[in-house]
């Protein structure tokens, strides 16, 4: 008969605790860097998607559809292992001298998430009445300037809750970076398991960290929803 001895001290102190903490920091770093870049790229793609110039619009559409409809894991493998043949040798050498595991994970997460963010921003823009654009144009703003000063600031405000959701998705998706050796939280939990055979404890610790992260951020969105978007309902 197998009996399992619980030993929570494995994950609450000492070397393995430090591993988990450093894993959490990497997860956080991946998520924050990823969401900032994904937001910038997503905004760009969203604007391109609404452009009146067809090739630009088509490029944005192809980008959206392709990256939304392929698994993130495959994209991670592609950027890490597959990009080698496409890039010039000098670029490869430079990338390899850096922390390329982390960079490849950030690239994959950024591109994947930006495709979703672009759609969120676009629906935010579409929810702004058309008349505003017409008014801005007749006031002498160019298309891009009207976007920049009139439409986007409002759209982004509406888009904040879905954006925060994308941030959460990104934080959760960053666990896939473990497959290319990025030592984030899930990777470290697995390391602790394989060194100590205390898998239950290690995964429980990681689970609690993920849950605390996602519940606290979800709570912030609710607050934003109440205070900023629907201030009349604020208590």
């Amino acid at each position: 008969m197998l009996t399992y001895q619980f030993d929570w001290s494995v994950v609450t102190s000492g070397k393995y605790f430090e591993w988990l903490v450093s894993g959490f920091m990497v997860t956080l770093k991946l998520s924050v860097v990823g969401i900032i870049l994904a937001f910038i790229v997503g905004l760009l793609i969203a604007v391109m998607r609404m452009s009146h110039f067809r090739p630009v619009r088509w490029f944005a559409l192809a980008y959206l559809e392709f990256f939304r409809n392929t698994p993130l894991l495959v994209q991670i493998f592609f950027w890490y292992f597959g990009s080698y043949k496409i890039l010039p040798q000098a670029v490869n050498d430079w990338l390899n001298s850096t922390n390329f595991e982390f960079a490849a994970a950030v690239i994959a997460l950024t591109i994947y998430t930006s495709a979703f963010i672009a759609e969120d921003i676009r629906s935010g823009v579409l929810s702004i009445p058309k008349e505003q654009m017409e008014a801005a144009r007749s006031a002498g703003f160019s298309y891009l300037r009207s976007m920049q000063y009139i439409i986007l600031p409002q759209a982004v405000r509406i888009t904040v809750p879905p954006l925060v959701n994308q941030f959460l998705n990104l934080a959760k998706n960053s666990s896939l970076a473990m497959t290319i050796g990025v030592m984030e939280l899930t990777y470290q939990a697995r390391q602790v398991e394989s060194y100590t055979f205390k898998g239950f404890e290690a995964f429980t610790a990681a689970t609690i960290v993920y849950l605390v992260l996602s519940t606290s951020i979800t709570a912030l969105v609710h607050l934003y929803d109440k205070r900023v978007l629907n201030p009349s309902r604020a208590v």
Binding site: T204, T207, L211, V212, T215, A219
Partner: peptide, 8 residues
Amino acid sequence: KLATLALA
């Protein structure tokens, strides 16, 4: 948050 912890 507490409840989630409890669930865990």
